[in-house]
Amino acid sequence: MNRISRSLLMLFFLTSVIACKKENERIDEEKPKIDLTAESAFPKQCSQIKRGESFNFQMHLSDNVALGSYSIDVHNNFDHHSHSTEVEECTLDPIKRPVKPFSIVKTMDIPGQPKDYVAQLKIDVPLDIDPGNYHFMVQVTDQSGWSTQRGISIRITE
């Protein structure tokens, strides 16, 4: 009887000891960053883009350890259902039905697992697409799988 109780107590203390063991493995707890404040960053919240021309997407991405990849997605927001992630509100046109809305999805690997990277893409906006309110989504990941999203409101003009 006493043996059982003693071994049970031992087990209890053993679990407590395991529970208290300090472990110092470093794990990455920081998300990557998308910098929209840099002078050269484009588009920014409420930026205007002319259809029939091309523009340069440019954004400074950074991470505390190593960047992974990034992705952009442009979609119409003619029905006002999407919202940007940004502080500033942009003027919205009245709700309208899309006829030939512009859309683009593009994903890119960031080579060499750097801590800093300037993402650059040349994007053509065809002349025959619907002008109006659009949503420009940028996502970036780091090597640990952390991700950051920024949804920017832009306007495509005639």
């Binding site: 992974g68 952009i72 997605d73 994903t107 799988g145």
Partner: peptide
């Protein structure tokens, strides 16, 4: 469900 560092442009419609 493990979030990776990759995006998928086609099957994943640009998502992580």
């Amino acid at each position: 469900l493990n979030p990776t560092s990759r995006f998928d442009q086609f099957h994943g419609a640009g998502n992580q």
